[in-house]
Design a protein around this nucleic acid. Structure first.
Lengths: 151, 151
DNA sequence: TAAAATTAAATCGCGCACAATTAAATCGCG
DNA sequence: CGCGATTTAATTGTGCGCGATTTAATTTTA
């Protein structure tokens, strides 16, 4: 009773994949905070801006898919980005159920300020380039598997 | 102006490591929810219970370190676990600043119910065993690097 | 073409995560 | 001993992240 037998091996923290994923994700977002404070952005606001820097004029559904976040998360994020003057948004003329999202000039300008962040973050994690690549590959494999299963 | 030149390559979402880490972490926690609902646990409550199943009687500082979460996150988590009757906690006699945390019998019993969760989750992500191992190794390398830098 | 079904985003309620601050107990130095 | 410094956890305020529900617009269908 209350033993530590191998029956429970699978329930040990160190044998999980989910746990280090969660801990590393939290850790990295924590590190970003220092640098993002200067841009007056949260991490979620930052990746939203990244999506828009790549492709201005998105609709909500596209942003949901790109960021793997749904509207109940993104609606308030977009409201705050609009309040800060980085984006503008509104209903599409052809179909007013659909929300378009656009960068403002101020939003475009932020991109140059943001440019130094990836360099700074890279220094924080001195992974071998091979490891970084492999990590990247495996994570995207998981994400793509998920997208496939949705269709 | 407003161009897409290689100047901004580093700012593309797909060239980040942080973003897929964050997205996969969210994805996995979302998947856990289905199974954890049956145990009346959130994901954070679940990993807290895992830590206690491995070693009953922890103090707050140990739990902070094990879970990479600080007391401002864990205090309310522990309060809820106590309300559910899975743990008990209180100040240590020798030093009343320190909080001890303990499983109740009900908390121990939950372990057997939880045992089927890892099997179910493994099915959701059919990674090659080699990939899972490599992912695990790299993530722990990052976590250990961080712990080292704290000392 | 009017009512029902569907679609898209917003809102709501809850529980994290976290930095900053506070509160309380213990330590250490004179 | 006594009191300022330190240590430890709790509290506070903000912003997610998400499932469930709601609201509003469009499409389908009888």
């Amino acid at each position: 009773m209350h033993d530590d037998s191998e029956k429970y091996e699978e329930l040990k923290l160190e044998n999980q994949l989910c746990f280090p994923l969660y801990a590393v994700s939290n850790l990295i977002i924590r590190k970003y905070k220092t640098y993002l404070k200067e841009l007056d952005l949260t991490y979620t606001q930052y990746i939203t801006m990244m999506a828009l820097w790549e492709e201005d004029l998105l609709i909500m559904a596209e942003l949901n898919q790109k960021l793997h976040l749904n509207s109940s998360t993104l609606s308030p994020v977009l409201r705050r980005l609009e309040e800060k003057g980085y984006i503008e948004k509104g209903p599409l003329e052809e179909d007013e159920r659909i929300l378009f999202i656009n960068l403002t000039d101020k939003g475009y300008e932020l991109r140059d300020k943001a440019l130094k962040i990836p360099k700074k973050m890279a220094k924080e994690f001195n992974l071998e380039q091979e490891e970084a690549k492999e990590l990247h590959r495996i994570l995207y494999k998981i994400l793509e598997q998920e997208e496939k299963s949705k269709r």
